[in-house]
Write a protein that binds this DNA or RNA. Structure first.
Lengths: 231, 231
DNA sequence: GCAGCTTTTTGATCTAGCGCAATGAACTAG
DNA sequence: CTAGTTCATTGCGCTAGATCAAAAAGCTGC
């Protein structure tokens, strides 16, 4: 059974600000679910039956062409909301990148609850507006930036959104962090091939912008330089 | 002075469903504004002071890099909503592609009104969710599709969203339509150069997929073929 | 340690789309 | 009608990034 009382993302998720009775109602339709890395929670084109809050872990939203090319269109962190409320179909595939835990709701039940709680809908609207800004900003990167600019932008963005594991410090951007992605996934985020991603990272290391202590670890050495490269 | 009573997008815009008293209140903070083609309504990075409903005309939302590359991230039609409610900054430049009329509101006044009217906020949420789906879908095109696929997708999308001028017929996709864009703008939508757009269109014409009666007119000859090309 | 994976890097080519330049077509204003 | 202006097309390299192929580096389990 779920308990919102002990939920670690309670104050940052869309649930924040709900009264205790409302939380109790929401609690009744909620179901916590564990997902292991690589597992898919919902499929593109499928009926939209679930929505969820991310409790822990990182997930990707992706779309693809019929011949197997993939584009990652969003990355989802703890306290973020996933799924498509008020819509019949999910237009993205949602897949866990790390082991994850999510708090799921049947979409229809959630929709009904949301319509009765303007404060919740307002939070959802705020988030959706932010996501839309983010997606549109990423369109500039996909459509107009060079491989070097893409990688530099990506590393800076990751240093902003990722926090070194186990560290609940102030949210200043960290210069060292562990990516929840392999090279292929970075390629799918940036609209590049895996080889180009690898070459660009090697180049940035050779030029002293970053260090690559291990496959998924990044240390930013020259943030200013990277910022300039990001365009 | 504005009058919602005679507004031609009243039933399709976010105002639809508001009662007549509420409409009167909204009316009081609204201001109709005419914009001529090419004129910019709001600038990227500027304080978000206005939001608006589009009454007539087509506008583009765009972002750019410091060195002048541009990416169009959205196209806005009559009854669509523009601007960034509940946010300090506008992250896109909004520019009229054709002569246009919009119904503007001071953002702060609109925000306050919206917070008092859950039904309105719900409509706004629905629209924002649809726009987010659209933006993410476009990311696949920008990141993963070839020039031919991009152009084919674009033409099909335009035939869906544009209606031949002066024709209030059922909304089946029209095979002939007039684009509100020049070649450079098509390029900025698709993340291509103007030359590539031109060459691809010439190629599609040569291969019998489309006819190009004049600069901005398109006639789709082989919709099935285009659909196949779109990938 | 080693064998069998998977993932990443590196190398060598190829090509789609870019960038530049010239030409041509359409629109505007006298 | 003509000159000026803007916009679109076409031609010709060139290059960033894709593609194909192989080697190297990490993991996993024994």
């Amino acid at each position: 059974m779920t308990s919102c009382d002990t939920c670690i993302v309670r104050n940052r998720s869309i649930c924040a600000g709900l009264g205790s009775e409302e939380l109790a109602v929401l609690n009744r339709i909620a179901r916590t679910r564990s997902i292991s890395a690589g597992q898919t929670l919902m499929w593109e084109g499928e009926d939209s039956l679930l929505v969820a809050n991310v409790i822990e872990g990182v997930l990707k939203l992706s779309t693809g062409t019929s011949d197997g090319r993939e584009q990652i269109v969003g990355i989802v962190y703890p306290s973020d909301f996933i799924g498509r409320p008020f819509g019949q179909r999910s237009l993205q595939t949602v897949t866990a990148l790390t082991d994850a835990r999510v708090c799921t709701f049947a979409r229809s039940a959630f929709d009904a609850f949301a319509r009765d709680h303007p404060e919740l809908e307002h939070k959802l609207l705020q988030r959706t507006l932010i996501e839309l800004d983010r997606a549109r900003h990423w369109m500039l990167l996909l459509g107009r930036k060079s491989a070097t600019e893409k990688i530099a932008t990506f590393l800076l963005e990751m240093s902003d959104r990722l926090v070194p594991q186990g560290c609940d410090q102030p949210d200043a951007p960290a210069d060292s962090f562990t990516l929840p992605f392999g090279r292929q996934q970075i390629a799918d985020i940036l609209g590049l091939t895996i080889e180009t991603v690898s070459r660009q990272l090697t180049k940035l290391r050779a030029e002293g912008y970053v260090e690559l202590p291990s496959r998924r670890d990044i240390t930013i050495i020259d943030r200013g330089g990277l910022t300039a490269l990001a365009g």
